[in-house]
């Protein structure tokens, strides 16, 4: 306990000597950790949205005309036999109009009851295998061969493209986060270098009275850790606020889970300690 107290007193002495510089570093680390945090939350939300869309995705098979009960039974059976199809629902012209009315309201579609332009369709529920390259195209091709089929609409293509954009964003976010982490590492190392420089005389005297390398460098490494830790906490608080604000005003977002927050803050701590350790290796010649 005593040595912990000693370390914190030493840290406070370093901070007090260079208060403005330390606060500046804290602010920079806060901003530096904010960016990876934003990417993390964005990626988490987009991935979740993508998964939700994929799980509820259907293939709409529009028909040339209304089918007989026999035709519906036969086609339902045949479509169910196709790979990737997990469910088949027949939507008659009337059902389609009712659905449209429910969605947009009767006023918007007034008059369509007499002359319904909507086609009958089959709605095919599909599994994840359909998102594999080429599977959706092959399935569409098979279905389009049926003479009853007029057109096929599958949003999976768009979703696949969205997925590709997401992956690119994730890679970009990761690359940017790594760059920002390096910048934070440099900032922390520089703050610790200044602290070492300010306390060079103290370090010399400590060496003179027999302080070991560990005794001397521990407070500096802890200073870096504390900067990283505090910066990450501030950043987590800001991210929580940003997520809440966006959820209330724009689009519902999920924040990080408690274990993810813990990882985020611990990453800040480690980043700080590593940066400080690099600085002590380079500038603390003992």
């Amino acid at each position: 306990m005593r040595s912990f107290g000693r370390i914190f007193v030493e840290i406070w002495r370093s901070v007090r000597f260079e208060l403005l510089s330390t606060l500046g570093s804290l602010l920079t680390i806060f901003l530096a950790t904010l960016l990876p945090g934003l990417f993390w939350i964005a990626s988490k939300n987009l991935t979740q949205t993508e998964a939700e869309l994929k799980s509820g995705l259907t293939m709409d098979v529009f028909l040339r005309e209304e089918l007989t009960v026999e035709q519906i039974t036969r086609l339902t059976k045949e479509f169910m036999g196709l790979g990737g199809v997990t469910g088949v629902t027949y939507v008659s012209k009337e059902d389609a109009l009712n659905r449209m009315m429910q969605k947009f309201g009767p006023k918007m579609l007034a008059g369509l009851e007499d002359e319904n332009p909507l086609p009958a369709s089959f709605i095919l529920s599909v599994d994840k295998s359909v998102f594999t390259q080429g599977v959706a195209e092959a399935l569409s091709k098979k279905i389009s061969r049926y003479p009853e089929v007029d057109d096929i609409v599958f949003a999976g293509d768009i979703l696949n493209r969205l997925g590709n954009i997401l992956r690119t964003t994730e890679i970009l976010g990761f690359a940017l986060s790594v760059m920002v982490a390096f910048a934070a590492l440099f900032i922390i190392a520089n703050t610790v270098r200044v602290a070492i420089s300010d306390r060079r005389k103290t370090v010399e005297i400590m060496q003179l009275v027999g302080a070991t390398r560990g005794y001397i460098l521990t407070p500096f490494v802890m200073l870096g850790g504390m900067l990283g830790f505090s910066g990450a906490i501030l950043s987590a608080l800001a991210l929580n606020w940003i997520t809440g604000y966006v959820s209330n005003h724009l689009i519902k977002l999920v924040f990080l889970e408690s274990h993810e927050i813990f990882t985020f803050i611990m990453s800040g701590l480690c980043l700080g300690m590593v940066g400080a350790f690099i600085a002590t290796r380079k500038y603390l010649k003992i």
Partner: peptide
């Protein structure tokens, strides 16, 4: 070296006290 220095007391012309 640190362990040996614990057995040697040193005084300097410029005192070398820690100002804070």
């Amino acid at each position: 070296i640190p362990f040996l220095r614990r057995h040697v007391g040193v005084i300097f012309q410029d005192f070398r006290l820690i100002p804070e």
